[in-house]
Deep mutational scan, measured.
Amino acid sequence: LHIEINVNGLRIELHNVSEELAERIREILEKVDDREEARRLAEELIK
């Protein structure tokens, strides 16, 4: 499954994740104000 999410102008592509996991990642990242911090957090979440 390939999912693309957009959060605060940051486009993140997720591969091989469930829709539920992608939604949780999006919800978490929406709470982060700083774009660079959101990017770093996204990288950690999808490892």
Rank of each mutant, 00 (worst) to 15 (best):
N6H: 13
R40K: 12
L1A: 12
I25K: 00
I5R: 00
H15Y: 11
I46P: 00
L14E: 00
L21R: 02
E4S: 14
H2P: 09
L21D: 10
G9F: 01
V7T: 06
I28W: 04
E4L: 14
E27Y: 08
N8H: 11
L14H: 01
K47P: 03
L10Q: 08
I28G: 01
E43F: 13
S18P: 12
A22V: 15
I5E: 02
R24L: 11
L1W: 10
I25T: 00
A42V: 15
I5A: 02
L45K: 00
H2N: 13
N16D: 11
L14I: 09
E37Q: 08
I5T: 02
E23Y: 09
E43G: 04
E30M: 14
E43S: 06
R39I: 15
E19P: 14
N16W: 09
L14G: 03
I25F: 05
A42G: 02
L1V: 13
L45C: 04
E19Y: 15
N16Q: 06
D33R: 13
V32T: 14
D33Q: 14
L45D: 00
R24G: 05
R35S: 13
L45A: 09
V17L: 11
H15V: 11
E44A: 10
H15R: 04
E37G: 02
E30R: 11
I3Q: 06
I12N: 01
R35M: 15
R11M: 13
G9P: 02
E44I: 10
I5W: 01
E13Q: 09
R39T: 11
R11D: 05
I5V: 08
V7P: 02
A38G: 05
A38W: 06
E4H: 11
K47T: 14
H2L: 11
A42Y: 10
V7H: 07
K31V: 08
E20Q: 10
I46M: 11
E36P: 02
N16S: 08
E37F: 05
E43C: 07
N6M: 12
L41C: 03
D34P: 02
E20M: 07
E37S: 04
A42K: 01
L14P: 01
V7I: 14
D33M: 15
N16T: 05
A22I: 14
R11E: 06
E30G: 08
E13A: 04
K47W: 11
L45P: 00
I3S: 05
V7Q: 06
E36S: 07
E19L: 15
E37M: 07
E30T: 12
E19T: 12
E30D: 09
E13D: 10
N6P: 01
R40H: 08
L14F: 10
I12L: 13
K47C: 04
A22N: 02
V32G: 06
A38N: 03
V32I: 14
N16Y: 08
S18M: 04
L41D: 01
I46A: 14
L1S: 13
E30C: 07
L21Y: 06
E19H: 15
E36A: 07
V17S: 03
I3C: 02
R40Y: 05
E30K: 12
A22W: 10
E44L: 09
G9R: 00
E13L: 08
S18V: 04
E37V: 08
R35K: 14
R26A: 07
V32E: 07
S18E: 05
K47R: 13
K47L: 14
R39P: 01
A38E: 00
E27P: 00
R24F: 07
R11N: 10
E20Y: 12
E43D: 12
L1T: 13
I3T: 08
E13V: 13
N6Y: 06
V17C: 03
H15F: 13
V32C: 03
E27W: 09
I3F: 12
V7K: 04
L21C: 03
L14C: 05
N6V: 15
E36T: 07
S18W: 05
N16H: 08
E23W: 10
E20L: 07
A42N: 00
E20P: 03
R35C: 06
E37H: 06
R35H: 15
I25R: 00
I46E: 02
I5S: 02
R39F: 14
I25Y: 03
E23C: 07
A22H: 04
I3K: 05
E30V: 11
I25Q: 00
E20I: 07
E36F: 06
A42T: 10
E19N: 12
I46D: 01
D34N: 11
I25L: 09
N8E: 05
R24H: 09
L1K: 11
R26V: 08
E27Q: 11
E27F: 08
I46W: 07
L45Q: 03
D34T: 04
N16L: 08
L1P: 12
A22D: 01
I12Q: 01
E13W: 13
E44H: 08
A42S: 06
K31I: 09
L29S: 01
V32N: 08
L10P: 01
I5D: 02
V7Y: 06
E13N: 07
K31C: 07
R26Q: 08
A22Q: 05
H2Y: 05
E13F: 12
S18H: 06
L41A: 05
R39A: 13
D34F: 03
R35F: 10
A42H: 01
E23I: 11
R26H: 05
E30Q: 12
E20F: 08
V7F: 11
A38V: 09
N6A: 08
D34M: 02
R26K: 14
E4N: 12
V7W: 11
E13I: 12
D34I: 03
E36Q: 07
L29K: 00
N16R: 03
I28M: 11
G9L: 01
A42Q: 01
E44Q: 11
R24D: 03
E27D: 13
H15G: 06
K31G: 14
L14N: 00
E44R: 02
E4M: 12
I5L: 12
D33V: 14
L21H: 04
L45V: 09
I25N: 00
V32Y: 13
E27H: 09
E36L: 07
E44T: 05
E20K: 08
L45F: 09
E19C: 10
L41T: 04
N6E: 15
L41W: 06
E44N: 06
D33G: 13
E20G: 07
G9W: 01
I3R: 03
R11T: 14
A42F: 14
I28Q: 05
V32R: 03
S18I: 03
E37P: 00
R11K: 15
D33T: 15
R24N: 06
R24M: 12
I12M: 09
H15W: 15
E36K: 06
N6R: 04
E4K: 05
L45M: 11
I3M: 12
N8K: 04
